[in-house]
Design a binder for these strands. Structure first.
Lengths: 207, 207
DNA sequence: GGATAATGTAGAACAAGTTTCAGACTTGAT
DNA sequence: ATCAAGTCTGAAACTTGTTCTACATTATCC
């Protein structure tokens, strides 16, 4: 069963009318647009509202805070990316190589819109408890991408899931260091490759 | 050579007079105090200024933003912690166990002041480029703590440094998930133990 | 089709981070 | 001791996220 089939895409809120769905979409589009220009700071709620032709109050009804909005934007982008990645699965021999390849592909995609990446990742790590459900959704999506890349035959063991968690931690934190200019692209690559070694360490046949 | 001997503690700015040093200290103290009460949001610049008997403008002269202030607070706390940890070095047999033990000890310390931890860690990951030097200092301190815990005889190899970087990523990100209520203490423990396995993987005698 | 509850709009108001400024105080050099 | 430069203070102003209010529009149900 894929992540999408599990309903990761739709948090099962009251169904929206068509106009509402359109508004939501306009808002997310404006958010991504502004984020692409200038990152987290450039996403200003008044501007998002104006760009998407929605009143400020309405914007806040759809997304109760700037962080909620950006996390939802990330969810949206991640879904695109998941779909894209699925089209050409990674070619590596072992799971570790495939995960590293997949994450590097995602990383290159982020490099094309570094400001957007900045806005999304900063929002994600800055999110407090009130955003937990949404952040959790993003996390599940990320996990699904990594598990997909591993291409396991059997369901993952607890150990493997731990490794995936650590990979996710490293992924987020490495992105942060890159976005804030404290690590180079090459350094991020090394970090990803290093952490992916954990996958070998936790694969059942070799343990 | 220890980290302190390298001057991690003092970024070599123009020397401060005694009164200035005292002001700086009062500010950091007020910051930690307020953070302990209510986390990131409770550290309000006007309140910090008032608590430390300093004008708002002066506070901003010492710390050019709230994030700068909290990162400096973290630096301060980390130095205490480094000193404390040195007193009783970890007892594990191999480097991996010692690092895990050290990080868990640090984690337990953070659990005693979860709000303070929240303020510091959120600031750290939210910091943008303008805070890079300060964040880097914190990062070097953390690295020093981990390397100390490893208790290596020879200087660390490039591979080992990569492992340490990944451990640091995991440490920060795991703290974030714990602070935002998305991971339990037990889960953080597992993540730390999992990532510490990388140390074995990269130790020269076993490679 | 009309009552009514929910949703959307415009805009003011509020909160907290940040900036600015005029004047008072320190400091360091002469 | 004094002058200049730099620092500190108090207070107001500005910015942007967030909340609130009064009114208009839309959706739903009979």
């Amino acid at each position: 069963m894929t992540a999408e089939a599990k309903g990761v895409t739709t948090p099962a809120s009251p169904p929206l009318t068509e106009r509402q769905e359109a508004r939501r979409r306009r808002i997310l589009h404006a958010s991504a647009q502004l984020a692409s220009r200038g990152g987290f700071d450039a996403v200003q709620m008044r501007e998002v509202a104006e760009s998407s032709s929605v009143a400020l109050g309405t914007l806040y009804r759809y997304f109760p805070s700037k962080v909620h909005l950006l996390v939802a934007t990330m969810q949206d982008q991640l879904q695109h990316m998941h779909a894209t990645l699925r089209k050409r699965p990674p070619a590596g021999d072992d799971p570790a190589a495939r995960v590293a390849e997949t994450l590097m592909r995602a990383f290159r995609a982020l490099q094309r819109e570094p400001h957007l990446a900045d806005a999304m990742v900063r929002a994600l790590t800055f999110a407090d408890r009130s955003v937990s459900p949404e952040v959790d959704t993003v996390s599940r999506l990320t996990t699904a991408i990594i598990l997909d890349a591993m291409g396991l035959e059997a369901p993952p063991t607890a150990e493997q899931l731990s490794a995936v968690r650590v990979i996710e931690h490293t992924w987020h934190s490495a992105l942060i260091t890159w976005l804030s200019g404290r690590a180079s692209i090459a350094q991020v690559k090394i970090d990803i490759e290093t952490v992916c070694r954990l996958i070998d360490l936790t694969s059942p046949e070799k343990a």
